[in-house]
Design a binder for these strands. Sequence first.
RNA 1: GCUCGGGUGGCGGAAUAGGUAGACGCGCAGGACUUAAAAUCCUGUUUUCAGUAAUGAAAGUACGGGUUCGAUUCCCGUCCCGAGCACCA
Length: 857
Amino acid sequence: MSAQYSFTEIENKWQKQWENTQLYRVSIDANKPKYYVLDMFPYPSGSGLHVGHPLGYIASDIVARYKRLNGFNVLHPMGYDAFGLPAEQYAIQTGQHPAVTTEQNIQRFREQLNIMGFSYDWDRQVKTCDPNYYQFTQQIFALFFEHWYNKQSQKAEPISNLIAHFENHGSDQLHAHGGKIEAFTPQEWKAMSALQQHNILNQFRLAFIDETTVNWCEAMGTVLANEEVINGLSERGGYPVVRKKMKQWSLRITAYADRLLSGLNTLQWSDAIKEIQRNWIGKSQGAEIDFVVRGTLKTLKVFTTRPDTIFGATFMVVAPELENLQEFCSEDQWPAVQAYANKAKNRSEIDRMADTTKTGVFTGMEAINPFTGEPIPVWVSDYVLANYGTGVIMAVPAHDERDFAFATTFNLNVIPVIKPVNSELELPLKEAFSAKDGVCFNSGFLDGLPVKEAIGAAIEKVEKAGWGQAKVNYKLREAGFGRQRYWGEPFPIVYNEEGIPQLVNPLPVELPQVESYKPTGNGESPLSAVSQWVNTPHGKRETDTMPGWAGSSWYFLRYTDPQNTQELASKEALSYWQQVDLYVGGSEHATGHLLYSRFWTKFLYDLGYITWDEPFQRLVNQGMIMGEDGQKMSKRWGNVVNPDDVCAQYGADTLRMYEMFLGPLTDSKPWNTHGIEGVSRFFGKFWRLFYEGEQWAVTQETPTAAELKILHKTIKKVTEDIESMSFNTSVSAFMVATNELGTLKCRKKEVLETLLILMAPFAPHITEELWSQLGNTSSIHIASWPKYDASHLVENSFSYPISINGKTRAQIEFELNASEADIQATVLSHELVVKWMEGKPLKKFILVKGRIINVVV
RNA sequence: GCUCGGGUGGCGGAAUAGGUAGACGCGCAGGACUUAAAAUCCUGUUUUCAGUAAUGAAAGUACGGGUUCGAUUCCCGUCCCGAGCACCA
């Protein structure tokens, strides 16, 4: 090896060496504590990685290497989220099979990842499009299909339990989370046809066939999830999206809404992500109250979070999509209502949201406010959503902005019933008073009660009078699980002659070859054209495929035992590796992958497959690296920086170090080509600590106190930084140490060797090389992490244990000119009182970082 | 509109159980080496004022208040930027 720092040579050499010796291969080792550090696996796109991608991978690799050096058995795998739309779009355009292009892309990703020297155990690589993998995705789907959610035991239970319940008790005493059914007796259940029974069970299965309004994208010929639609256009491609009724598979995620909410409190995630999930789940507590429609026996059920305002409910509004709308309309108003409802249906979401003025039509009917006994008009308006609550509201214009706007537009009655605690409302109201810290008035028995108490009192009254009951609502919707696409997991489902879905065995149900990847355009998947695959002796196969998030909702479990052909992972592997200790990835998956993974984990926990019910204990969201122009890096802007090029020019260690040096991991920041020069220079200086010109210069001399101080300061700093994931300041610490040791011309083995270990997680290649040049025969990556010794950090000072403001501080160091024998020090509050021995007056000394900065006589 | 973050030199950013603000890097300026350049190394670099200079003084972490011996850090108010949610009753 030459005396110059030749990174290309060094990096190639050690990457090969690590591969040959399988240095990063791990297996279960009961004698070591485990640590599981995981990156969000990438979708292997055709354009490869840019310098933004590795940011999180570098951070997790540093932690993985650090934990190994600290004696942990570290699981640090990588894989590919390989099913998805881009490969399929590419297939439609070129006719190339998605499996072929995906495999090519994976090879490219693998090469790029290897160049950067990550310590993955590649034997554990998973690909979601591999039948060996997706047979278990199908199996988990089958488990969802075969289970229902028992609200009493608060967990998923086998569907056979539910059938037994129906056989013994009918629909009585049912605590199942699910859809609405008509009551039936055990005898009636037994007399039902298979199809009738199926229709009832379908209301409770956790994987079920749902008839819902879906986001239909005509251009792509497929259904999209809510999060794939932005402002009425598809996220990918920007095609228009319309609402359409369709039957498709869904997962009953709402059964887990409460647990998904409360589980957040146990996690070390950023507040931002937790908040996004909380908003998404959208729990709100209130009451459902029945309003009798005047002159009929019918009732309109409303959901409200503000039953305390019910004395001010002066009209009602029903959603135009309500199915039995006509029942709540007078004959003469029906044509107008119907016209309005039709118009609302065809109005796109984007129009509806953009329109701030309220529209609506009177139904011609009135309902009775149960609290006041007064008749109030019933209106139809599209500001009320059919799929939230009951699709009907009681409008309290005095205390709700939307109701106020509506009442103003149509000149409806406004009755204030809540006023501020210490003042009066200004009448007539100019805007709704929606604050929750008010007091009731004009409200009969609620008068004088503060809002919070009045809510409880109103609900109590409602329940006693039999008008309704307390109710919790969620914004969270069932998770649509079908896509009319080719490149995804096929469902393990066939439909028999009666159209009843049946599970298929054995798994996997492999994806067949097709002539064309194009969607049929009538809403069916390209698979429906493969008749020899679709038609089986047991019936017709389901031709939809699973959505992109299916495979990614459990892959972290598969890494523990990726080659297992019998089960998704062995009990032994799962109980050893357990949940992910540290998960690193982008925040854009907050309401998708991160929520679904939690849902699947809780389900598998209920079934006893795993013993923990949260997948990712600690989550860190790395920021984005922008182009130098501040734009997001993309081909479109022509501002993509390729990591291969950077590695070729500066080396992988420099790239790794520089990406960490750019700023806090979680911040977004621009890539700056000049900045990398500084890190590159640093490696030159670092190398020259070991070489004097051409000459190897490391000596065996004993380090001086000053040198040990530099070393131990660095150990302390870097250790704390890695624990808190502040990698940017660690890089600074290495630079400082290198500069200081360079100034001291310190070439002592004891110091340099320890410094190498500290830097090994950041710059694995150069440290490995110098480590071996120092004469070590085993890899630096299995060395032990150094501990710092505080005694080296104190110099020319006396230290006294003291306490400040009642809190104990271990020690405070300070410098004094007088010798210790001359003074006597005591501590009062935050002040150190130093008394001279020879009867001089008391003086108070104010300490700042161990130095006396002020003297108060 | 609501909910979270965040405003520090020319730039990226350090420093918060309150304690010498501006670490480290970039850029810039000057110097050494060189015939010259590159590379490398050294020095300086918040602002203002005073001084030939070493140096000294004052101000300074978006703005205005407060608590404190002491505030970038804690509290109240204002402004600005970013992210998320957005007719969810």
